[in-house]
Amino acid sequence: MANKLKKGTIAGIILVLILVITAAIIIPKLYVKFIKENTNVEQKTYLYIPTGANFDQVRDSIAKHNLLIDSSSFYGLAKDRDYGSKIKPGKYPFKKGMNNREILNMLVAGNQEPVAISFRNVRLKNNLAGMVSKKLEFDSATLVTLLDSAEFVKSYGFNTDNIYTMFIPNSYEMYWNITAQDFFIRMNKEYTKFWDTDRLKKAADLQLTPQEVTILASIVDSEALMDKEMPTIAGLYLNRLNNGIKLEADPTVIFANNDFTIRRVLNRHLTKDSPYNTYRNKGLPPGPITMPSINAIDAVLSPEKHNYIYMCAKEDFSGYHNFATNLSEHTANARRFQQALNERNIKK
């Protein structure tokens, strides 16, 4: 009996030792695999996973940016969870203190961080495409191709000349891997939201479409260095439109000549044969000459009521304008400004 007890005690001790040894081996491994910090970053760093990326590409990108302290423990857990078949594209933040479980949960669930996109005062749609593509996955050519597709933009009520009026300057959040088409759709939704009942009514009262309002606003924005002058300038151009007078807006001439270094519009610039040259053509140009600010759009929708049909930059270079109701007064204003340009040796 004593021998049996003794043997039982020994067996129990051996079992305990085995459990202790096993625990001593397994628990540290489990700690490293699931709990221990494993991001090799001091501040938030992003992992970009392209659309269609495979496991090897993800691993190469992680290695390239040295995001992990212990890559073997991470890839061991990734294999256990079959991450290779669950890869989701996107922009993923690696933060100090994250462990393997947190990293994989983020990647498997596709919990990416949105990208902040902001655009204002962008002159051309090519410029917009280039700016946006620097922050999103798709390339600029893909977006430009969409904007230049007559069939595609027509389905949204635009043409290839006025499609740029759809983009409302503001700040937006979206995911990095959004497609060019989905980006377009998102911007169209923002456009529809912007043109609410109140703005649509104001445009209708002016007998202008939203696209025409934005085209005129692009001219107003290009003329006005001071926002407070925008309603006055908008009223002036509306007076000219309503009276069948050519707009004769210098910024449209600069756009038509495709030379944005011009500081002084000369007679040779006015002869440019272009639908954007409002010295040669009556009415609005076919599209905007820049992306107008919201302030400029609202200035057109709520213009100042007056009888001005002429304007000229003030000779003090303050950024403000002298306005006139008749040609003789305007000629005097223009002469003073031209003299000021000559005194400063501004010839072109």
Rank of each mutant, 00 (worst) to 15 (best):
K4W: 05
K4Y: 11
L5D: 04
K6I: 15
A11R: 04
G12W: 09
G12T: 14
I13P: 00
I13W: 04
L15W: 03
A24C: 09
I25N: 12
I27V: 15
K29G: 06
K29C: 00
I35D: 11
E37L: 02
V41E: 11
V41L: 08
Q43M: 05
Q43A: 12
I49F: 06
T51P: 02
G52E: 07
A53S: 15
N54M: 02
F55C: 02
R59Q: 14
A63H: 02
H65G: 06
L68M: 06
I69T: 10
D70I: 04
K79D: 14
D82Q: 14
G84H: 14
P89K: 08
P89S: 15
P93A: 15
F94V: 07
F94D: 13
K96Y: 10
N99T: 01
E102A: 13
N105T: 10
L107Y: 10
V108P: 03
A109D: 14
A109Y: 03
N111Y: 02
F119G: 06
R120D: 13
V122Q: 02
K125F: 14
K125W: 09
K125N: 09
N126D: 11
L128H: 13
A129G: 13
V132S: 06
V144H: 00
T145M: 03
S155P: 00
G157D: 09
F158I: 07
D161M: 11
P169C: 02
M174C: 15
Y175A: 04
I178E: 12
Q181V: 13
F183T: 12
I185W: 00
R186V: 11
E190S: 03
Y191L: 01
W195T: 02
D196A: 08
T197P: 00
D198N: 12
L206F: 04
Q211R: 05
E212V: 10
I215M: 12
A217F: 02
A217R: 05
V220N: 10
V220R: 08
E223V: 11
D227W: 00
D227N: 13
K228P: 02
P231E: 01
T232S: 08
I233H: 09
I233C: 11
G235E: 10
G235M: 03
L238Y: 06
N239C: 04
I245V: 07
E248K: 13
I254Q: 09
I254D: 10
F255P: 05
F255Q: 00
N257C: 15
N258P: 00
D259H: 02
F260G: 07
T271K: 13
T271V: 14
K272L: 00
D273K: 13
P275I: 01
R280D: 01
R280N: 14
P286Q: 07
G287L: 11
M291P: 03
S293Q: 01
I294D: 03
P303S: 09
P303R: 05
K305M: 05
N307E: 12
Y308Q: 11
I309C: 03
Y310C: 09
F323D: 10
N326T: 11
N326F: 02
E329T: 15
A332L: 13
R335A: 15
Q338S: 04
N345D: 12
I346G: 08
